[in-house]
Design a protein around this nucleic acid. Structure first.
Lengths: 137, 137, 137, 137
DNA sequence: GTGGTCTAGACCACT
DNA sequence: GTGGTCTAGACCACA
């Protein structure tokens, strides 16, 4: 279910967050479904419960899950996910910066475009979209 | 010359690196031109000299500048910039992750494509390219 | 009869307590009327019987209901409700804190006053008071 | 500078958050001013550094402070404070619930109104407002 | 059993 | 020095 990479520069709790987001967004974890308990998941991943806890709290803050003390943590409805404008802006800023770094490294505009198209196609497949994603234009 | 944002999540030395890279790649700092000394720049930015030092070291490692002991630090030729494969891989990974985050937030493939096209156009203009960049496809 | 919100931050047993208090204070549950048994209510709400049990105990402690062994739990007279000074102090403290939070968020005194007047009017209506509640002054 | 009440039902990190909010909103901590470091404050309060850390992170998330790794934590501009709609809604819900509890305890509408007016006057004084706060109407 | 909070350490990158 | 992350425990209230 989970794949942690301890060597990654992404911190453990961020990896947990992202993997759970993926499970929820792709519909593997359906609305109302219970997530493993903090202690369970911490054992599965052989990480400290506090680390899992931190991930769950952040997921709740962003609206991906809701928590009932004494019962557990449950997947929220996709419509509950908060499209926090500040968060979006930060992602866009990251994109902008990363793209710039690539041009600094000598990538031509064409190379970047084909690279991005590759990445977008990956995503399309992962989302299991039937309709073919249109090209950037 | 410089705009540091202390409130940014990006560390100070990274901001310095990126801004100098920008100056070099856009041709504002021409090949062989001298950069301000570590002490000068640290005063200008009211930043710890160690921080500037670290930035210069990293810039040299990546081939953007070269250092002549006793003389200072100079902009290198654009052709000297090392296209470090590891660095590229990391950037691609960042792109992949960021794009995924956007889909988690409910952005449709269409929205992301148009967002990226916008960012690429920005870059095109910044690079001062005459020919219009083609769209992603 | 009951509306539990599992996603609420309020614990389940508190929600039960408050909803029963509401039924009693508004006269829906009249003096001497029997409440559903712990088991019944726990089934209705699909909640752990211990949770309902805890709510009933607390309601009894506060004088809202009385229990007759072997018969069940009954709504008490409104005059039996204990105006527990400690509880009142705690509620006042909560009010104080909440109002302060609002000022921290930049709410002007005016805004808070009009907000409160709105809430008080809601209450007036719920209580079915004929005479119009006077404004805060 | 700080007054922690270990016996309070409010958790330690929440108390820290609220006291710092107060210092910032009342202008005791001015924009750009440095807060005590996590370790410093933890020693002053004889609490664990992690507890202070948790408070600082939450304050940053809400826009009250900004953080520069390696430098410290600084008071943000009052205009940066995020008036998160969800947070406001929750506060209003708390108010509504608390007011209802009071009526359950037998408080008449008039009693509650005079209680609230008392609390609002406290706030007015604390804010050091010159102009007399108008009454609720 | 569950999550929530807290302590007491440790290591890392950045200034 | 600073904040950020993580581990290894503990205690509490709630279900």
């Amino acid at each position: 279910m989970f794949q942690l990479d301890l060597k990654s520069r992404e911190s453990i709790y961020e990896q947990i967050i992202n993997q759970i987001k993926e499970l929820i967004v792709t519909g593997v974890l359906k609305e109302g479904e219970k997530l493993p308990s903090v202690r369970e998941l911490s054992k599965i991943l052989t990480v400290n419960p506090n680390t899992v806890q931190k991930s769950y709290r952040e997921l709740e803050r962003q609206g991906y899950v809701y928590t009932v003390a004494g019962l557990g943590c449950f997947a929220a409805s996709l419509s509950d996910i908060k499209r926090d404008e500040a968060a979006v802006q930060q992602l866009v800023e990251t994109l902008r910066s990363t793209l710039r770094q690539l041009t600094y490294l000598g990538f031509a505009a064409e190379e970047i475009r084909s690279l991005l198209n590759g990445l977008l196609r990956e995503d399309d497949q992962k989302q299991g979209e039937r309709k073919k994603g249109s090209d950037l234009s």
